[in-house]
Nucleic acid binder design. Structure first.
Lengths: 249, 249
DNA sequence: TCATCACACATGTATGACAAATTCTCGGAT
DNA sequence: ATCCGAGAATTTGTCATACATGTGTGATGA
């Protein structure tokens, strides 16, 4: 199994193609971002990853090292690789209160970045990027109508907006933040579809305001709409926390 | 050389102590952030790093993988490890114009984050954090008076402010941005001390406004002062670029 | 029932080998 | 002398194996 990474000459750049490490890393990153592994979950062992991806442990370890440095996973010798869990209820409650807010921490730093991204996107978007944003928006609507999770599509939309800034750092920033980007996804059970649908439609409307502003090249309106959306997310998340506390404690 | 990483039991946590990978990674990260290696520079080869740090190549490679994922370095097979160079004049000019602005790109995403950080720091700083900020400020003044580079001290001040938000993500963000954080450092030659000193004193004054506002717990003033500082940096950097262009082209 | 210990498993590090890409060097042809 | 190309040296990419160290778990025995 020596010359495994031989083929692939043509610059397939764009995803994780340049090296095996990039490919495995992107694969794991997507698996985490898409919610395949929730916060606190244990990833397959290095040995298993070695087999499922048909690469050596070296490659797996380097890929994991990258995730670790991005704060996406936490590796414990002898135990395994775990998706970072800001929620103390899931990961041993040693850090009792200082870490409770970590989902909010992510939201806190995301807010200024995404507001700026929306403003810049309004000023700089190309027609293709505008179309990509609308496409994501439609996708979310489709998910709502077919009653699927909007988690992935929601993330895609935000990434699409970041991409429309034409400053690659914005996209990179979002992708580094991990599963906490769409925080509520790992808290809400899949129940209460009526309430759930209303909630999703509200998000959809907030998105719409952002997108229309970007389409109109109105950067101030885009900033305001994005601010409202994120502040709304923050409020919704705080309410969720409150509900959870009244259940558990 | 088998049992090299045996010692070090006591939890020396705080820097890169938990694992050899963390130690080497932090060491390299600091070397880059402190300007020991400028953008475009080639780092020592993996073999050399193996010897200087007395670790195996495994460890070096994992540490470098982390830097790579943070966008701090770029690794080219057969060539070496290079500090990310946004400057097309230093790294082959294949990406002719799309990448010219990358220093500005960093500034562009830093701006909203640091403005928010200043505001949060004003609201949340502890007395110890306030003191740390003042200490950095004094350090910069000392550098100016003794005519040393303020690069490192400047970076430290910004990190100290980020730390005073009590949201670790802000610090992590700054440390991930790399050498481009203090962009002018690799453009200005060490000459023209008169003009240089005036320039540094201006920066010092801008810092002062930020710090006073944080000390006063006036978050709006802190935001405004930080905004002014960063906008000023951006303007100064654009001027530098213009000067350079008139020289080279 | 409960404490203890052994063992399986998981990650951490070291070492050596070969593949593949780049750079350097040197000798030959013009 | 200059240009050029072949090959050597260097450097990163990947694989395989071995051993060290930390974790969890279940069997064992009091």
């Amino acid at each position: 199994m020596r010359g495994e990474g031989v083929a692939m000459q043509g610059k397939d750049r764009g995803r994780g193609s340049g090296s095996l490490v990039s490919r495995v890393g992107e694969s794991l990153r997507q698996a985490i971002l898409s919610g395949q592994y929730a916060a606190g979950d244990k990833l397959p062992s290095e040995h298993e990853l070695t087999e499922t991806h048909s690469v050596s442990r070296t490659v797996v370890r380097e890929a994991v090292a990258a995730l670790r440095s991005d704060g996406l996973v936490e590796v414990r010798q002898g135990a395994g690789i775990f998706v970072i869990s800001p929620d103390p209820a899931l990961s041993g409650r040693k850090v009792d209160k200082a870490r409770v807010a970590s989902d909010l921490e992510v939201l806190e730093i995301r807010t200024p970045v995404e507001i700026e991204a929306a403003g810049l996107a309004a000023l700089r978007r190309s027609p293709a990027q505008e179309e990509a944003i609308f496409e994501c928006h439609r996708k979310i609507l489709h998910c709502i109508e077919t009653d699927q999770s909007i988690r992935e599509a929601d993330l895609e939309l935000h990434v699409a907006i970041a991409e429309a800034t034409n400053n690659p750092l914005f996209k990179h920033f979002l992708e580094s933040q991990g599963s906490a980007i769409i925080p509520q996804s790992r808290l809400v059970p899949e129940t209460r579809t009526a309430e759930q649908t209303a909630y999703r439609k509200l998000i959809h409307r907030e998105h719409e305001a952002i997108i229309v502003a970007i389409s109109d090249r109105d950067d101030q309106a885009a900033r305001n709409a994005m601010r409202e959306h994120l502040v709304g997310s923050q409020a919704r998340y705080r309410n969720l926390l409150k509900d959870l506390r009244s259940f558990t404690s």
